[in-house]
Simulated assay, not measured.
Amino acid sequence: MRRGRSIMPACNQRSINRCVVMKILKIKSINSIVLVFLIELTIEISAQSSVLACGFFERGNSLFVPWMTVRSGVTDRGSILGQWSNVIDQGYSGRACPANTVVLRRASLFRVPSGLIINDGGENYDVYPTGINNIGYYMRLLGPNNIGITFEQDVFRNAHDANFVRVQIKYVATGPLNPGVYTLPGRHVVSVQWRVISNGAEVFFINRASTYSATRVTVTGGTCSVLANDQNQQVVLPTVSASSLQGVGSTAGSQGFTIGVNCPAGVALHATMTDANSPANTSNILTLAQGSTATGVGLQISATDRAHVVSYGADSRVAGNNNQWFVGGNATSPPTNHIIPFTVRYVQTAAAVQPGTVRARSTITFSYQ
């Protein structure tokens, strides 16, 4: 048997990544010629394609928060709506990157913060507009080691190091919400640019935007109401002598009053008292108003079923407001008429007490949770 000539087509290794080489062997036999085809593949890998093999990845393509239902009584500026969305991960995997490759990351916003800052879980977040009045959103952006992302900042990392961005959103009320259904359209929230640089030259660039999907907020109309006769009360304390106060912190004279609140089923009622003369006051002493001539005294208010006097807080119905306290009720409560008993009394605030008239004003804000 005599082997014939091999036939090898030309291969252009510069312009193609795959080259097919065919060899034809002629074999003589007694009555026939048998053609045997041997296929060989030659794959070209250039330096640039090696860099591109460093893998960009993305898990999840849209942020979504399930439909939310809240009561109108608990939706005020700063009230958090719903839960955190699902997570979108995007980043650059550098396991296949050459040693001299770096990745640049830059996160950019689509809109300007509203000015409202929310504290959630001990972290502060800027709030951005959704396009729907009194509803905004905030974002949790984390990088490797759960380090927060700074916007409009170029971050360089060795391509072999972990490099990713994790995005979530949550909605928040930026003002009071009346009963009704609010449909939030989807929109872009953040874009992240990724640049791969090898030997000082950019060899790859991608700009990926994260978007949240449309969702809905339903605000129910079930609210509580204060009894008409209790809405504007004037409480008159008894006259006491200055000598009945025996030192700073001592008390004298008292007068009781009640406030009645009717609530529908399923409401947990909370309350905050505010010093109308000094709204920033968070102590348990009510400051004196204009027209008072006595000095060295103040007023304390306590709920008679409470072990301590009331401390004052901001005039806000937001859940967890400073010095807010629980009145009663829960998600399974029937319709309830809450009668809240209070006692107000004089308290000495300075070493010297000057007799005179005492006037003070307080408001109470109820939160339906």
Rank of each mutant, 00 (worst) to 15 (best):
R2Q: 14
I7P: 03
M8I: 14
N12Y: 10
K23A: 12
I27F: 07
I27M: 14
S32N: 08
L38M: 09
I39D: 07
T42P: 02
E44D: 11
A53T: 14
V74E: 15
V74T: 14
G82R: 00
W84Y: 11
N86C: 08
Q90T: 02
Y92S: 05
R95C: 10
T101H: 04
L104K: 12
L116E: 14
N119A: 11
E123L: 14
E123H: 12
Y128A: 06
P129M: 08
T130L: 03
T130K: 04
T130M: 06
G131M: 12
I147K: 09
F151N: 07
F156L: 14
F164W: 07
Y171D: 02
A173K: 01
T183C: 05
T183N: 15
T183P: 00
L184E: 02
G186D: 08
V189D: 00
V189K: 00
N199D: 15
V203Q: 15
F204S: 12
N207T: 15
A209E: 11
S210F: 03
V219P: 01
C224K: 00
V236D: 13
T239R: 10
S241R: 12
Q246K: 14
G253W: 02
F257E: 01
A265Y: 03
A268H: 01
A271N: 03
P279N: 06
N281Y: 04
S292Y: 11
A303T: 10
R306L: 12
V309S: 13
R317Y: 08
F326I: 05
T332Q: 12
P334N: 13
T336C: 08
H338F: 15
I339E: 09
R345T: 04
A350T: 09
A351L: 13
A352F: 09
Q354F: 03
I364Q: 01
I364D: 00
S367Y: 00
